[in-house]
């Protein structure tokens, strides 16, 4: 079974086409990188997968479940760490994690265990009682990641997860994501740090003006000894 299957997806905002008839299949267990300039359609695609955006053309299935027809089954498999911080700024971190665990149907005992687990993992224990709005940018980013993992999703979608995170934390996060991937979680990563994508992902797609202009394994991207960044710049420059 594929973790994600997108068929002929088109998403428009009024007359503006944000995503233009894309097809994309991601196998279970892949670590997939999605690259593109700002406004290329990456976040819109992610929003369509996760239910933040609606779409009228095409279909998306997560773990075999259509995200519109069987949205509850599909969403239970997804963990999202969005680009923008989207949490109640007045709510303490542990409450946010508790509520999200509840939205995913976890009972109180499981929620308490999972909250401790993710707070330990992201070194957030000492901040658990602080309101989300009082956390620093880096702590907020880690809190959002912790929230995405509270229900142990099969498909983890990370939209710019290391933006604003210091180098040490970024490397610690890479290690964690590698461990998570090795334990079987499918991961989709968008990032403007191309060395991050090159380090972590086995397959990379590039979006430009709402279209997927390249979808290759990392080996193919770097086969002539080029860095991913060089190939990325060549491909997007051609289109510009």
């Amino acid at each position: 079974m594929n973790a994600l299957e997108i068929k002929e997806l088109t998403k428009k905002y009024g007359k503006a086409v944000a995503v233009d008839n894309i097809d994309l299949t991601i196998k279970k267990g892949e670590f997939f990188g999605l690259l593109g300039q700002n406004g290329a359609g990456k976040s819109t695609t992610i929003n369509c997968i996760t239910g933040i955006s609606q779409f009228a053309q095409g279909s998306i299935a997560v773990m075999g479940n259509d995200v519109q027809e069987e949205y509850q089954k599909a969403r239970i498999s997804i963990g999202l760490s969005p680009q923008e911080f989207n949490a109640d700024i007045f709510a303490p971190l542990e409450k946010i994690l508790n509520f999200v665990g509840g939205y995913f149907g976890l009972d109180s005992k499981t929620r308490a265990e999972r909250i401790n687990e993710v707070l330990d993992r992201f070194e957030l224990q000492e901040h658990r009682k602080k309101p989300f709005g009082k956390l620093s940018g880096g702590l907020k980013r880690r809190a959002i990641l912790a929230r995405a993992l509270i229900h142990r999703p099969e498909l983890l979608i990370l939209d710019e997860p290391t933006a604003g995170v210091d180098v040490e934390q970024r490397h610690a996060l890479w290690k964690y994501l590698e461990d998570l991937h090795n334990s079987g979680t499918t991961i989709i990563l968008t990032s403007h740090y191309l060395e991050e994508v090159e380090h972590l992902c086995s397959r990379v797609a590039i979006m430009h003006n709402g279209e997927i202009i390249a979808d290759l394994s990392k080996k193919e991207f770097t086969k002539n000894g080029d860095k991913l960044e060089d190939t990325y710049l060549k491909l997007t420059a051609k289109k510009v």
Partner: peptide, 14 residues
């Protein structure tokens, strides 16, 4: 306004 609604929209809540 805070986009915290997305926590619910991306969850399996009916």
């Amino acid at each position: 306004w805070t986009k915290a609604i997305e926590e619910m929209l991306t969850s399996p809540l009916s």
